[in-house]
């Protein structure tokens, strides 16, 4: 005999509680997002404060990619700048953060006042990007204290000027980003390392594994999910990089990165276009979105291990056999 029990459904209250977020999200994020896609297909420009717009299909994309005669693919140059600056910041950042995370969690490394070290590594990201840009510009300008010191020590030539050299400017922007964000990455990685079961390390110790073996055989493989998260968020943030390069070594309008347009990032380009040509700006935004998506998916593909994939397949199979929950 079947007994029918009356179930109380609390589910609907849950929806009520999450509703405010989804409503704000829909108005302030989803709608503009859809709009951006729409604008990218408009010939929508401003002249003397008057706006003109008409539908033009994929014309904007053909223009920004230089597929039409008379148009040049400036966006590729800005993507190149962005990738160089991002790469020079991210690779050292992940290496230093990994090292710091390993040291700060390993009891054998008897680091004194660990708390203080963590706070200090995190501090730079508390300062506003604007102040840091201005500060570094002053430090590394032609007569800036650091430039002068390096010249006196003979490390750089007497006529070298960081702000006149593409490598110098890009390198400094990368360094600022590295210095600002490595503390944040370190904290994320530390939390990842602390999530690894201590039993594993204990077992390894008993087996006589040294620090290096433990790092490469235990820490690194088990950090993969966190690493994936760090990689993807950094790629998203890095490709949209705007504030530091837009304030560091630029024309007075802030949209042309000196020298020779070599420190202009994609986001700066979008801002430059936004004031004159909204349709084109939207097209560049969409392109940036697609590139970011592809890069994230690549990371995701390589970041998920084979075992995890196998596990996911098994689970799926079980589910389909069991007929769902």
């Amino acid at each position: 005999m079947k007994k029918r029990r009356k179930k109380v459904r609390y589910g609907k209250y849950g929806y009520l509680f999450v509703a405010p977020f989804f409503l704000t999200y829909a108005f302030f994020q989803l709608w503009p997002l859809i709009n951006t896609f729409f604008y990218s297909m408009l010939n929508y420009y401003k002249r003397n404060g008057r706006e003109f717009s008409e539908f033009c299909g994929l014309q904007n994309f053909q223009n920004i990619l230089g597929l039409v005669s008379g148009e040049k693919a400036y966006v590729l140059h800005y993507f190149k700048n962005t990738f160089i600056i991002w790469g020079m910041n991210f690779i050292p950042q992940i290496l230093v953060s990994l090292l710091l995370a390993a040291w700060l969690t390993d009891n054998k490394v008897r680091l004194r006042s660990r708390g203080a070290v963590k706070v200090i590594t995190y501090l730079p990201s508390v300062i506003t990007a604007a102040s840091i840009s201005v500060l570094f510009h002053a430090l590394f300008s032609q007569y800036g204290p650091i430039t002068m010191t390096l010249k006196n020590l003979g490390i750089i030539g007497s006529s070298f000027n960081f702000l006149e050299s593409s490598a110098g400017t890009r390198g400094l922007i990368s360094f600022i980003l590295f210095w600002m964000w490595y503390g944040n990455t370190t904290l994320l990685l530390i939390s990842g390392v602390l999530g690894i079961s201590p039993d594993l390390y204990e077992a390894a110790d008993i087996d006589g594994a040294n620090g290096r073996a433990k790092f490469f055989r235990i820490t690194l493989p088990l950090l993969k999910p966190i690493m994936l998260y760090v990689l993807i968020t950094s790629a998203i943030g890095g490709l949209q990089m705007y504030d530091i390069p837009a304030l560091f070594n630029v024309s007075n309008t802030g949209y042309v990165g000196f020298p020779n347009d070599n420190s202009t990032t994609v986001a700066m380009y979008i801002m430059r276009l936004y004031n004159s040509d909204v349709g084109k700006a939207a097209a560049v935004s969409v392109l940036l979105f697609i590139v970011t998506l592809i890069i994230s998916l690549i990371f995701f593909k390589f970041g998920t291990s084979n075992e995890e994939k196998a596990e996911a397949r098994r689970r799926k199979k079980r589910l389909s056999e069991g007929g769902g929950c």
Partner: peptide, 18 residues
């Protein structure tokens, strides 16, 4: 949808700080 928003939205939003 949330994921997509994370990817794109801040492009225009960051202007203010500078």
């Amino acid at each position: 949808a949330i994921g997509a928003a994370m990817f794109t939205v801040p492009v225009f939003a960051e202007e203010v700080e500078t």
